[in-house]
Design a protein around this nucleic acid. Structure first.
Length: 376
DNA sequence: TCTGGGGTCCTAGGACCC
DNA sequence: TCTGGGGTCCTAGGACCC
């Protein structure tokens, strides 16, 4: 029997939460964000407003735009509320972000569309949020179906309609294919998914590399055997801060890094994580980026140790900074593992953090199965 | 359209080991 | 003797997603 995968995704998540919590915002063009739009309601999208756009530009496109405050705790709480509802509809729920998840609903069989309708109603009534749902045989198809279903809709891609649904789409609509990959495909004259499906895997690997080639080939030929799996542990924790233009004294940069290290390690300690690799992220005046990283002998969640590593990394990057001008610094701690000091000796189940089997301490190269190619 | 902040995964080269 | 082959880890960068 074919699996049935559901992809459930709250529409315009941040903006919908804002509209839910403030009735005066309903049916009005709303964005959430600061100086850049983080989410736009569908009313705002009708004016051409998109996330990532500077708020000033959004205002020019839509003079009656309402800019709602970013209430991060409210978003986190709303996300949890939605996930709790989803958990009632399947044992296998794989969150993909705060506001979307894959559900294995194979057991529902022919009743899956009715289940999806009930789920949408539950999220609407209990969480007060619009949910779009895609139903299909694979994750990618379900994901792409929910996208087509938006806003506030349900789309079912039946097995015998998969080709008809997928093949006419431009390659850039494949989940996981962005601008760079689409450009490579188009440079070979491949514009639609159907055209890609005519190539064999080796040809696609030659164009996109091993993982990308396999992935795109699998999707185009309707193979995507990745199962819905429960959430894996977090892989990294990070924070960053824009510094504005103009030269910054070293002391100011160091102070910013110390504050970021504090923020990151506090979050790690709260979750019982330690990490071994410290990554310094930099962005320059010309919007180019660079990273410098250092792997410690022992994992840590101490701000001081992270800050010390950051200082060394900053020294290593000094010539680059002098040349290009620093505009943003970020700190990421990766190579996470559960803090052994915090492990219960006889817990009900083992900690889930680094659970991905034989991957070991997945340094920088990492084989994961998140979005990667379909497994053989 | 001049560009937020938080993540995940893949690639490639070099070091090092057996 | 025109020079192994496989594996792991680290570093840096790129692509993509929400």
């Amino acid at each position: 029997m074919d699996p049935i995968v559901m992809h459930a995704d709250v529409d315009a998540f941040y903006a919908s939460v804002a509209q839910r919590d403030d009735p005066a915002l309903r049916r009005r063009p709303v964005v959430v964000g600061g100086w850049v739009v983080m989410a736009a309601s569908y009313e705002a999208r009708a004016f051409g407003v998109r996330s990532g756009m500077p708020t000033a530009q959004a205002r020019r496109l839509c003079p009656e735009l309402v800019v709602a405050q970013t209430r991060f705790e409210a978003f986190v709480a709303a996300g949890r509320e939605v996930m709790a509802i989803l958990e009632r509809f399947s044992d296998a729920v794989e969150p993909a972000s705060m506001e979307e998840a894959f559900l294995d609903v194979t057991d529902a069989g022919a009743a899956a569309p009715a289940l999806a309708a009930r789920l949408r109603a539950a999220v609407r009534e209990e969480a007060g949020l619009p949910l779009s749902v895609g139903l299909a045989r694979t994750k990618v198809l379900a994901k792409m179906a929910s996208r087509e279903a938006k806003p506030d809709g349900l789309m079912v891609v039946e097995r015998e309609r998969e080709r008809e649904f997928l093949h006419p789409l431009p390659v850039g609509r494949i989940w996981g294919v962005g601008k760079a990959t689409a450009a490579k495909l188009e440079a070979h004259g491949l514009r639609t998914v159907g055209e890609v499906a005519e190539l064999d895997e080796a040809a696609l690997i030659a164009i996109l590399g091993r993982a990308g080639g396999r992935y795109v080939h699998g999707i185009a030929t309707l193979r995507d055997p990745r199962p819905v799996r429960r959430r894996r542990g977090r892989r990294s924790v990070g924070a960053q801060r824009a510094l504005g233009r103009g030269p910054r004294p070293r002391a100011e940069v160091e102070a910013a890094l110390a504050a970021l290290a504090e923020r990151v390690t506090t979050r790690m300690r709260r979750k019982g994580h330690v990490g071994r690799t410290v990554v310094l992220r930099l962005r320059f005046g010309d919007y180019t980026r660079a990273t410098r990283s250092q792997t410690l002998a022992l994992p840590t969640a101490e701000a001081q140790r992270v800050t010390a590593a950051l200082r060394e990394l900053l020294d290593a990057a000094a010539p680059l900074i002098a040349r290009r001008g620093l505009t943003l610094v970020g700190v990421t701690v990766t190579n996470l593992s559960p803090d052994a000091g915090q492990l219960p000796l006889f817990g009900p189940e083992p900690p889930a953090a680094v659970a991905s089997g034989g991957e070991g301490a997945s340094g920088g190269g990492g084989g994961g199965a998140g979005r990667g190619p379909p497994e053989p």
